[in-house]
C-alpha cells in the first residue's frame, strides 16, 4: 500500500499532472487562459504521430511475437465486454435512462489515447518497458465499444442505429488513422527511421504532453463548471469505480497473455480509460437524444483526472506486484 501511495505522490508532482491541474484550476477560477482549437488539434496530431511511430519502431526493433494477434483479439473482446459491465453498473447505481446509460457505457468500453500516452510516459520515466504493439491494441479498442453500446440501446428499445456513413466515420476516425498510420511508418522504417526524427518526436514529447494536458485541464474544468450539476453522487461513484473495474479486466487479460509489466499496465490503463474524442462524435450522430453533458463530464471531468492522478500509479503498482516486475 505504501508503494502505491509513494507512486501516487511522485506522480502528483510530475510536470504532466501539474500542467493538467493548472488548466483545471484556471478554468474553474474563470481565467481567460485558453488554447485555440487549431493549437489543440496540432498538439494532439503530434502526440498521436509520436506515440504511433515509437510503437511501430519498437516492434521493428524487438520483432513480433505470437501475442500480437492474441493481444489485438483481447483488445476487441475487452472493448465489446466493458460497455455491458458499465451499463449494468450504471443501471444499478444511477437513474440514467437507457439511452444515456448506453451512451456512457460506450465511452467506458472505448479508450482515451491521452491516458494511454500519459501511462506510457510514466512507464518511460520509471524505466519500465512495454510491448510496442500496445499502440495497435489501443487503436483497435476504439470502435467495438460503440457498436456494443448501440446494440445495447437498440435491444432495450432506446432507438439509435448505425448507417454506412457512421461506419466509415467510426472506422476511419482521424485519430485511428493517424495512430495506425504512424505505427506502420515506424514499423516499416524501424529504429533507423526513429533515429532520423528522434529529435522531433522523442525529446520534445513530454513538453508537448504538458501543454496538451494543460488544455485538457482547461476543457475538463470548463466542462465541470458548465455541466457539473448533472453529476449526481451515483454518477460520481461510477466515474471512479468503473475505471477500477475495467483495470481489473485489463489486469486479468494482461496476465493471461503473459505480457510484460509495462504491457499489463498499458492494457489496464486502456481498459480503465474512457473515450472523449471518437465516441462522443459517434454518439452525437447515432444517439442524439443522449445528454452529452453526462458522458463528456463523466469521461473528461471525473474518470480522466482520476486515472491521471491516482489510477495510473495504482495500475503500475498492481501490475508490478502481480507480474513480479
Amino acid at each position: 500500500m505504501s508503494d502505491i501511495l509513494d507512486l501516487a505522490a511522485g506522480n502528483l508532482i510530475s510536470p504532466i499532472i501539474l500542467s493538467f491541474a493548472l488548466g483545471g484550476a484556471a478554468a474553474l477560477a474563470r481565467s481567460d487562459l485558453s488554447v485555440p482549437e487549431a493549437a489543440a488539434k496540432a498538439l494532439s496530431i503530434y502526440l498521436l504521430f509520436a506515440i504511433g511511430f515509437k510503437g511501430g519502431a519498437s516492434v521493428a526493433g524487438h520483432g513480433l511475437d505470437g501475442t500480437l494477434i492474441l493481444s489485438l483479439g483481447t483488445g476487441i473482446v475487452l472493448s465489446v465486454l466493458l460497455p455491458f459491465v458499465a451499463f449494468a453498473l450504471l443501471r444499478a447505481m444511477t437513474r440514467l435512462s437507457v439511452v444515456d446509460a448506453g451512451a456512457v457505457a460506450g465511452h467506458y468500453g472505448s479508450i482515451s489515447i491521452v491516458t494511454f500516452v500519459a501511462a506510457s510516459s510514466v512507464l518511460a520515466s520509471r524505466g519500465i518497458g512495454a510491448e510496442g504493439y500496445m499502440v495497435a491494441v489501443a487503436a483497435i479498442m476504439e470502435a467495438p465499444a460503440i457498436l456494443a453500446a448501440l446494440w445495447l440501446v437498440v435491444r432495450k428499445g432506446g432507438g439509435g442505429g448505425i448507417d454506412a456513413g457512421l461506419w466509415r466515420e467510426i472506422l476511419l476516425n482521424g485519430s485511428i488513422v493517424l495512430l495506425v498510420g504512424a505505427f506502420a511508418i515506424g514499423w516499416i522504417t524501424g529504429p533507423e527511421g526513429l533515429a532520423e526524427i528522434d529529435s522531433f518526436i522523442v525529446a520534445p514529447f513530454k513538453g508537448v504532453l504538458c501543454l496538451f494536458l494543460l488544455d485538457m485541464g482547461l476543457v475538463a474544468g470548463r466542462n465541470l463548471r458548465a455541466s457539473g450539476k448533472v453529476i449526481t453522487p451515483g454518477l460520481l461513484a461510477f466515474g471512479v469505480l468503473m475505471p477500477l473495474v475495467g483495470s481489473l479486466f485489463g489486469l486479468a487479460a494482461g496476465l493471461a497473455l503473459n505480457l510484460s509489466t509495462g504491457g499489463v499496465v498499458l492494457l489496464m490503463t486502456l481498459a480503465a480509460s474512457a473515450s472523449y474524442i471518437a465516441v462522443p462524435a459517434a454518439m452525437r450522430v447515432a444517439l442524439p437524444e443522449a445528454n452529452p453533458s453526462v458522458y463528456l463530464t463523466l469521461s473528461l471531468g471525473v474518470t480522466f483526472p482520476f486515472n491521471l492522478t491516482l489510477g495510473i500509479p495504482a495500475y503500475v503498482a498492481l501490475a508490478s506486484l502481480t507480474t513480479g516486475g
Partner: peptide, 16 residues
Amino acid sequence: RSGEWSREGQVSRAGG
C-alpha cells in the same frame, strides 16, 4: 437549451 459550449481547445468535433 443543452447548455454552454465553446470550440476552444476541443480536440474532438463532438462538442462543436
